[in-house]
Computed example of a mutant assay.
Amino acid sequence: MKKRIASSAVLGFLLCSAVTAPAQSVQDVVELDLVPGWRTETGSHMAGLRITLAPGWKTYWRVPGESGIPPTLTFAQSTNVHSVRIGWPRPGVFESYGLETIGYADEVVLPLEIKPTDASTKMNVSVRASIGVCRDICLPVEILFSSDIAPGAGAHEPLISDAIARIPKTVQSQTARCAVEPIRDGLQITAYLPVPAQGGTERVFLEPSRSDVWTSPSKVSREGDTITAVADLVPPEAKPFALNRSQMRFTVLGDKGALEMFGCQAD
């Protein structure tokens, strides 16, 4: 059974064009709810955070692109919840006003692997979602809601299973290499990723462990089964910093698929 308690506040408007658009109710644009799901063999619970958008609107992936708004999902107010791991299905690529953004249109289900503190009692999953939604204008919105999940096996839900199937697979049989050079306001990283072609125009997203580091769009080239990506990493202090190579996350996104690698060895 789904339970939704939602209060939404528009934090501001980011105009995406020179035309001033009328204000629009957040409830008319985006809704969030929890798809309850099932208990796994390991004792965790597989649920889904469903984001439903009005026609023509989109929201953003973990890495939103050149002009997108990065999403933040927190579960701190939940009860009987030990941890939550979020899955991110393969996103789409959108172009608007000459800028490229990465995200989802219409509807997306984010798989949530939830570990209860006590598996014999219900969980109350409380979500604070700070996300961006865009059409002709972009609205940064904050949505608060909670939902109970009863103990027990639950039922497999195709919406969640399909979303899990679209999460980029992790390449574990190969090792990424990366060269790091200091630049005036941070670091430049060149990553060599031994992954097969994913079709069409490939993009590579580089994510350091520090969430406050700005990462430039990467310059991508491919030779055989190795794709090379070059990007700048600029921290708030705007100077070179110590990069933890083992915590780097790389996502290769193509027209036909996506793959991920974690960590890289010095080149």
Rank of each mutant, 00 (worst) to 15 (best):
G92R: 12
T201H: 07
G103F: 05
S120W: 10
R245W: 01
D185P: 01
D212W: 09
Y192C: 03
V180N: 07
G37Q: 10
E41M: 09
S83L: 05
E113P: 00
S25F: 03
Y60A: 04
I69K: 04
G199M: 12
N124K: 14
P182S: 03
V84P: 08
S130H: 11
V63K: 10
G257N: 12
I160S: 11
S25I: 01
R184D: 07
V109T: 12
T226G: 11
L139E: 06
T101P: 10
Y104R: 07
S209Q: 15
P55D: 13
S221W: 06
R249G: 04
E66P: 09
T215A: 14
R222L: 02
V26E: 09
V141T: 01
S218Q: 09
V195Y: 05
R62C: 04
V26D: 10
S78P: 05
I183E: 07
D185H: 08
P70D: 07
V252C: 06
A242L: 07
S130M: 05
S147C: 02
V125R: 01
F13D: 00
S246M: 09
A153Y: 06
S7A: 08
Y60I: 04
I149G: 01
V127D: 04
K122M: 12
V220S: 05
E113D: 14
P111R: 02
R245E: 09
R184Y: 03
T74L: 05
A9S: 12
A231P: 02
T72M: 04
V10Y: 01
A150G: 10
W61P: 02
S67K: 15
P22Q: 13
S120D: 14
R222W: 03
K219S: 13
I164R: 11
R4T: 15
D148A: 13
V195M: 14
V30H: 07
V127N: 06
S44I: 00
K256P: 00
A119G: 13
A155R: 04
L144Y: 12
D118N: 15
L99K: 13
A229Q: 05
D267A: 15
E237G: 00
K3V: 15
P64Y: 07
S218V: 03
P236R: 06
S17M: 02
E157N: 15
I86H: 08
A129S: 13
A191I: 01
I183N: 06
T226A: 12
L144M: 08
E41C: 06
S246I: 08
S8K: 10
A176S: 15
S17R: 02
L139Y: 15
D162Q: 15
P140V: 01
Q24L: 07
P55R: 04
S161I: 10
M123Q: 15
P70Y: 08
W61I: 03
S161N: 12
T40C: 06
A238C: 05
